[in-house]
Simulated assay, not measured.
Amino acid sequence: MSESPAPASLVQVRGVGHSYASRSGTREVLHDVSFDVAPGEFVCIVGPSGVGKTTILRDIAGLQRVTAGEVRVAGSVLTGPSSDIGLVFQDYSRSLMPWMSVRDNIALPLRGRMPKTDREQRVASAVHEVALDGHEEVRPWQLSGGMQQRVAIARALAFGAPVLLMDEPFASVDAQTRADLEDLALRVRDDTGQAVILITHDIDEAIYLSDRIIVLGGRPASVLEQVEVPFGPVREQLVTKALPEFGRLRTHVHTLIETASRAMTQATPVVDATR
């Protein structure tokens, strides 16, 4: 029997719905969410606060089970956390072990998965990729916020998964550090060929980073539009953000989100911590 060809899409989200139990009954957060992500593609997910962006990311990560539809990664239906997926969260201070060195934090998910020599090579490569050379023995609490997030990114790189999920990873740093980390994320994608799915509230960040932006809206949330970003792989903070097309896209995405936000506000109020 011949092997079936690999899917063109690395991540396939098909008709995903997600509901949570509450005191008043079942609350549906996501409804019929569908999109694909190709190998090496950078996709950002945006939408109003409380729409369910983090919920869909957790579904894709396998951290929780979908209540409708399915998520496939590398052709296999996701039923839990997968070795094909790396994660970078917003709160780097909680994701890093403060008593462990930078090197040991990066190596943590590799323990027991490979020989020590291979593990050390993976860690060294990741350290170099995020420009942390010379900081291997430093503890995270001795680093700036931006450098701590570089450690978290390096750990995900060392893990070697073909899909990298990032939940507002640059929201807790200053503007200049944020720009530096955005450029780092693009360089990492180019160097590794990873598919990246990033959640953000920042429209400019989404446009600067993305090949495609997925806009969520509604209650329950669905995909309002998938916005193609035509800038190609080479981007520069000042040059790219000054392009007329960048301004047009900013206005378009902002209008989609504002319209969705007003519609959610006019709907029946629901306490929602799913972002």
Rank of each mutant, 00 (worst) to 15 (best):
L256W: 08
M1K: 13
R58C: 08
G80R: 15
R65G: 08
G17S: 10
G62Q: 03
A179K: 00
H18P: 11
V127I: 15
S19A: 15
S24G: 14
I257Y: 02
S210P: 07
G25V: 06
L96D: 00
P7C: 05
S19T: 12
A221S: 13
L108N: 00
G47I: 08
S9K: 13
P233H: 02
S144Y: 01
D202Y: 10
R150K: 05
R275P: 06
V229N: 12
I85Y: 01
G80C: 09
G86F: 02
W141K: 11
G232H: 08
P269C: 12
S93I: 07
R111C: 05
S22F: 06
H31T: 08
S101M: 02
V138Q: 12
T55V: 11
V227S: 13
P244W: 09
D183C: 00
V163T: 12
L143H: 03
D104V: 00
I153T: 01
M114G: 02
A74L: 02
L224T: 14
Q12V: 15
V13Y: 05
I45Q: 09
R187L: 01
Y92C: 00
G15T: 07
G25T: 06
V196D: 03
G69E: 10
H252R: 13
F35W: 15
A171H: 06
R72Y: 06
V11E: 14
G146H: 01
A273D: 14
Y20N: 06
G112Y: 10
P220G: 13
A131T: 01
V229P: 12
R23Q: 14
A267F: 14
T274C: 12
R189G: 03
P269G: 11
T259K: 09
V71P: 03
M147T: 01
Q226H: 12
V239T: 11
I199Q: 07
T54K: 11
F42R: 04
A242G: 07
C44N: 14
R250V: 05
S2E: 14
S210I: 05
A124L: 10
M97L: 09
L57V: 11
C44M: 09
Y20I: 09
H128I: 06
P269M: 13
L157S: 08
I203E: 06
A206W: 04
L96H: 01
G62K: 03
S24P: 05
A68Y: 13
I106A: 04
A61R: 04
T240D: 05
P81M: 10
